[in-house]
Design a protein around this nucleic acid. Structure first.
Lengths: 140, 140
DNA sequence: AACTACTTTATAATTATTCTAAAGTATGTG
DNA sequence: CACATACTTTAGAATAATTATAAAGTAGTT
């Protein structure tokens, strides 16, 4: 049996609302992802490595992928791509933008970028979201 | 006059300026990519398949990857990513933006999007470029 | 023509991800 | 609260995109 405090409940709710039963593995992943102050950017591989590093009983790769996908589909994680064929996830699901600096990602609050002009969606389509990536390089 | 020759020359120049000797394979890839009116979006796999379809002597996978990478590094192709772990390339290297519509990509001319406000680069960094992706969905 | 450095190619290796199917577990029902 | 059942976990195999290897071929120079 394991203890259940009120904090655990919000993690469990995130899982349930993603259509996932709150198994041990999933609750721990959910805690690891959402029990933090700052936005967290990660790849599934990174998540797996940092969580499994300290565990004697490892969580399997498939479980990490399954859980991250379900959380993403339920809207608890945001997915984005850099130019290296890997999916990145972001625990900040509010609309926002990114700096990319040689593989490092920094959030840009939504209100830091505003548009003067935006194109219309093609016929029969509408805009789902607008994402800005500002690529950085070293000064001089 | 010598329209065909001078055209070939521009393909060869693109290769040379990418640090590549103009071999047969590379000249054909360069022609295939740049001898067209409209912007071309592609993955290396797609490029390989459409070029090799009609050839008796196939060009190898590695050559496609090498050539596309060198052209990209030299600035003759632009790379971008969707959320499917595949690199896409764009023969339109002018600064511009994209609509993403379920894996389909549509160019947005640079002047269709202008900013009212943009954040400053972090200390020691400067902005290399700004890219906007507008994700589309079907109108209800 | 000969030389040398760059290329091509088939194939193996790698990386990220998804699939499979057998063994384990959460949960509603009684 | 036992139990049946549908959902989960897991190791390992499979797949997809890409990169590495090293032997055979070719371009550019001399």
């Amino acid at each position: 049996m394991h203890k259940m405090n009120s904090k655990n409940k919000t993690f469990i709710d995130k899982l349930r609302s993603s259509g996932l039963r709150p198994t041990n593995q999933r609750v721990e992943i959910s805690k690891f992802l959402f029990n933090r102050k700052k936005t967290f950017h990660f790849t599934v591989e990174e998540l797996k490595n940092s969580m499994n590093l300290k565990r004697s009983k490892k969580i399997s790769t498939a479980t990490f992928y399954n859980t991250v996908h379900a959380l993403k589909s339920a809207g608890h994680l945001k997915e984005f791509s850099l130019e290296n064929n890997t999916s990145y996830y972001d625990t900040n699901i509010t609309s926002h933008h990114h700096f990319f600096d040689n593989g490092k990602v920094i959030d840009i609050k939504s209100d830091k970028i505003t548009f003067q002009k935006l194109p219309e969606a093609p016929k029969g389509k509408k805009i789902k979201n607008v994402e800005v990536v500002i690529r950085l390089e070293n000064n001089n």
